[in-house]
Design a protein around this nucleic acid. Structure first.
Length: 558
RNA sequence: GCGCCUGUAGCUCAGUUGGAUAGAGCAACGGCUUUCUAAGCCGUGUGCCAGAGGUUCGAAUCCUCUCAGGCGCACCA
């Protein structure tokens, strides 16, 4: 348990005791317990913690907030606790100021836990499935996948730091309509390249990669497949190109710093019979019915405004159908406690129906959550450019990484909360200026490493370090920021918002840079110097841990 | 028409799930280096929190409506 949690628990206990004593002493009477809620006031003068408990009670006690607060404070036993002073302020806040030693405890925790500082056991023993990107394997990864990749991968790390056993998973849409289109497109290019006059399908994939695949394929196998019946030929072409694409996708994502534990094939759901058994289950439960030759799911029974097709009149299951079977596999066959998906905003309409379907097959829909990210808008020369794989104008993920670098790409795509609409200004991202906050954070880290290198010979172990010598306001601010790291990870997990970690690194770097400009580490006074060395080592450690979660490197020199 | 997301400083965004005087970065201006990395630090402004009602001790935050932008509303995914 970290120092902040210890203190918070202690204060809550003291609050509860004071409440009981006040009631026992006849100051007022209550019917229901108020929330023992602590907040961290923005203003320094209001102390480290504050509670609005007294303001929750006037209604049931018929006393004024200030009267209640005074009674509570009078009955507070703070002896031997971290609390230094208790004050009543404003309309009835009770503010707690702490003894400064608590911040030195935070520093000691970091020195002791090192690369594990920030980890917690909140979710130990539970499993967490993180599915993200899951793009059609019909072409290379593009910039639109970069945001989902960063969010999903970092959220997975965050979950792991809170104790979850995490599985990163990519769902390969290697079945269904898109694959049919893919096959049609490949086939058309194949035949065109071999001199046949064929019309390219209007809704086909027009990207150069399709043509490239077929050039390579022809170089390997010639025109021997022209004679085949079209269906059989497409199957061969798809198998060839899919394999190529997947290999490339895996390679590109590894470059981007993403490693998946599971690559789950949609086709395997058909092969294993999972689709069929899911259909049977839905039918048996009375959640599926036939109409117009199709099989429908009664989504309206679960709050949707219309039902959805499970199996088309042509006999082919829909993507929705496969998705139900897929999530049953996650929850029932593999027993995940929690499954999180990252989806683009254009898919938000699917959440309700999939949750409905999960409810139908007796899975608690609250175990399934979707992080909706707003789509990336690409700005080129101030103009909005749409990204579309079909038009072949998408900027490839690899191109983006080549130009901007992995660190900046991941950092930038996780800088804002998934909810926020995001403009990716190509010119700005390519420009490696100080506008890019990743440099700011890395610079802080490199700066510390540089000092530590130079201090290595000078640290005097004979003289004990004295942490209580750290008294400058910049030192306290840095200590306080360091102590917030475990909190930030828990908040990022609770709110499924990994961007908090990125913003935290900026805050921490800022606190360090301020310290650096105000205080010298290399001073004559050895106890102070050793304490400051401990402080910057802790800072270095936390920056390293935080950047590690982000998948961004922490350079020792810049 | 219906649903979801968004609307906060000139720009990009935070805002601890309802708290006290609404904050950062960028941009603008002015300062800081005989000493550990100036890719840094310090200082100076700006707000009808889109708008109107409501809920209560208290609202950027919750509810209703209006306006603006994005995304959905397929036997596509």
């Amino acid at each position: 348990m970290y120092i902040r949690e210890k203190i918070e628990e202690q204060i809550k206990q003291i609050m509860a005791d004071a409440l009981n004593k006040s009631v026992a002493g006849g100051a007022f009477s209550i019917e229901t317990m108020p929330d023992l809620f602590l907040e961290m006031p923005r203003e320094k003068e209001h102390g480290e913690y504050s509670t609005n408990m007294a303001m929750q009670l006037p209604k049931q006690t018929r006393k004024s907030p200030r009267y209640i607060a005074e009674a509570l404070v009078e009955n507070m036993e703070t002896e031997g606790s971290y609390i230094d002073t208790v004050e009543i302020a404003g309309p009835g806040f009770i503010n707690f100021k702490l003894k400064k030693i608590w911040q030195y405890s935070a520093l000691e925790e970091i020195s002791a836990l090192k690369e594990n500082y920030g980890r917690s056991t909140k979710n130990t023993g539970k499993t967490f499935n993180m599915e993200f990107i899951s793009a059609n394997p019909t072409g290379p990864m593009h910039m639109g996948n970069a945001r989902g990749g960063a969010i999903g991968d970092i959220l997975a790390s965050v979950a792991n730091w809170t104790g979850y056993e995490v599985t990163r998973e990519f769902y390969i849409n290697d079945a269904g309509n898109q694959i049919v289109k893919f096959g049609d497109s490949l086939d058309a290019r194949y035949r065109q390249l071999l001199g046949e006059e064929v019309l390219f399908p209007a809704d086909g994939y027009q990207g150069d990669d399709i043509t490239e695949h077929m050039k390579d394929f022809i170089a390997l196998e010639g025109d021997q497949h022209l004679a085949l019946e079209s269906h059989a030929r497409k199957e061969i072409l798809v198998e060839y190109a899919l394999e190529k694409n997947l290999t490339q996708i895996k390679k590109d994502l590894e470059t981007y710093g993403i490693h998946y534990d599971v690559w789950f094939s949609e086709q395997s759901l058909y092969d294993s019979g999972a689709i069929e058994s899911t259909i049977e289950l839905l039918k048996k439960g009375g959640f599926a019915y036939e109409q117009d030759g199709a099989l429908w799911f009664k989504a309206t029974s679960f709050g949707s405004d219309k039902d959805d097709v499970l199996i088309r009149a042509n006999g082919l299951p829909t993507y929705f159908m496969a998705d139900i079977a897929y999530h049953m596999d996650k929850f029932i066959n593999r027993g995940f406690d929690r499954c999180i998906n990252v989806w683009g905003a254009d898919h938000h309409g699917h959440i309700a129906r999939l949750k409905g379907a999960l409810t139908a097959v007796e899975i608690n829909p609250n175990q399934f959550e979707v992080v909706i990210m707003q789509l990336v808008r690409l700005l080129r020369n101030g103009e909005v450019a749409r990204m579309s794989k079909r038009q072949g104008k998408a900027i490839a993920l690899t191109d983006l990484i080549d130009e901007v670098g992995v660190d900046a790409t991941r950092f930038f795509f996780n800088l804002r909360s998934p909810d926020s609409h995001f403009d990716f200004d190509l010119a700005l991202a390519i420009e490696q200026s100080s506008d890019n906050p990743v440099f700011y954070v890395q610079y802080a880290h490199a700066r510390i490493c540089s000092i530590i290198r130079q201090m290595a010979e000078e640290v005097n172990d004979e003289v004990p370090m004295d942490l209580t010598r750290l008294i400058e306001k910049e030192e306290f601010h840095l200590l306080e920021t360091l102590s917030l790291f475990p909190n930030e990870i828990l908040l990022a997990e609770e709110r499924l918002d990994p961007s908090r970690i990125t913003r935290y690194t900026i805050e921490l770097a800022s606190a360090f840079h301020s310290f650096y400009n105000a205080c010298h580490v290399r001073v004559e006074d050895f106890p102070l110097m050793n304490a400051r060395v401990a402080l910057i080592e802790a800072t270095q450690q936390v920056i390293q841990n935080a950047l590690g979660i982000l998948g961004v490197t922490a350079p020792e020199r810049m």
